[in-house]
Nucleic acid binder design. Structure first.
Length: 354
DNA sequence: CAACCGTGGTC
DNA sequence: TGACCAAGGTT
């Protein structure tokens, strides 16, 4: 083992033993690791903060505690349980992967990085993290925390994403053969609490003396990142169709934006001014004055709200739709953009009634 | 390989 | 307060 690998990993693991965070998916020292919980937490934590994941992880594991229960779960229930977490392909892939574990692996999670990589929703990072944390395999685990720590430790100046190969090689060079899972979690704890994006707490860092970025001064400028393109603005209309205290919901197609989620009917979102063309039924549509704004990863959306009421007998509506009690709308599992719109319309109705 | 895919936390 | 960001994956 090279000298830097040994000294960095030893210092970091000692620090981890003393300062590790107590998280619900983390086995306590001496406790048996549960691979299902490790996998689930890793997927939930993809591009998602610990603060947002923690309550959702607890609720999810209470309802679906293992691969078998998740593989047998109702799709609509799973998607509703994921509502608000974003990147909904993760939920669709969780079910697919759980079914594959039951059907193709006899209910036992594969333990090598290569086998894990074959399951839907497990990419390079997650397969390595599960192999290391759940099964103790030596794997090079590189997430955004590790990228930041390593870019500073080795003073890598190449901008992301171009620096990925060099960062991965550097991470490999400091990953120990033993305790690879603890090492990965130590790097992530260090990155999230100490080697933070804006103002790293270098005086508290256990590997400061090995850090080239610290030695040079101004480690916070690393890693260098390419500038992001401005987000385009799009417009759309959503349709609130009410009938006898219920509102019409549809299920979005399984692919694409908000795929597989319950939603209000809506036309395509584009440049044009909003209109009534894509209404789900013939009715006296009325456009509300206020709009709802929502930001997605790669565009900003301004939604116009169209409302109408129909009588029970005139209920010619899309086939893949359902009437949902308005008073129970919070249980429908709507993605945040539609939850916002629904709340705005209910607020409008309350003001109007007053 | 660059575009697509969400949302809440954080300062 | 808005801009940036987070335990990324898929196509």
């Amino acid at each position: 083992m090279n000298a830097k690998r040994s000294s960095v990993s030893t210092a970091l693991l000692d620090w981890y033993d003393a300062h590790r965070r107590d998280l619900p998916w983390r086995a306590k020292p001496g406790e048996i690791v549960n691979p299902y919980r490790v996998w689930l937490s890793e997927v939930m934590l993809q591009q998602t903060t610990v603060a947002a994941v923690t309550p959702r992880f607890l609720a999810w594991t209470a309802r679906w505690p293992d691969f078998a229960s998740l593989a047998a779960a109702d799709d609509a229930d799973v998607m509703a349980a994921w509502a608000g977490l974003g990147y909904y392909a993760r939920a669709r892939n969780l079910v697919k992967a759980a079914k594959a574990v039951v059907a193709e692996h006899g209910g036992v999670f594969p333990r090598t990085e290569a086998e894990l990589r074959e399951l839907p929703g497990l990419g390079a990072y997650t397969a390595a993290a599960v192999a290391a944390i759940a099964f103790g395999e030596r794997a090079v685990v590189v997430d955004a925390n590790v990228e930041r720590v390593v870019a500073r430790l080795f003073a890598i100046e190449t901008p992301l994403p171009g620096a990925r190969p060099a960062i991965r090689a550097a991470a490999d060079s400091i990953t120990p053969d033993a305790r690879a899972g603890d090492f990965a979690q130590a790097m992530m704890d260090l990155g999230s609490g100490t080697c933070t994006t804006r103002s790293p707490k270098c005086l508290l860092c256990p590997i400061r003396e090995h850090c080239e970025g610290f030695r040079q001064g101004a480690p916070e400028r690393l890693p260098v990142k390419a500038k992001k393109a401005a987000k385009p603005q799009r417009f759309g209309t959503i349709f609130w169709l009410e009938r006898d205290g219920q509102v019409l919901l549809v299920r979005r197609p399984d692919t694409g934006l908000l795929g597989g989620m319950r939603a209000f009917p809506t036309g395509p979102w584009g440049e044009g001014p909003p209109g009534f063309e894509d209404a789900p039924a013939q009715a006296e549509w009325r456009m509300l004055d206020s709009t709802v704004a929502h930001g997605f990863t790669h565009f900003d959306l301004q939604l116009t709200l169209a409302v109408a009421t129909v009588e029970a007998h005139q209920s010619r509506v899309p086939t893949a739709s359902e009437w949902w009690p308005i008073d129970d709308l919070d249980t429908a599992g709507l993605p945040t953009v539609f939850a916002k719109a629904g709340q705005a319309i209910r607020n409008w109705a309350i003001r109007r009634a007053a």
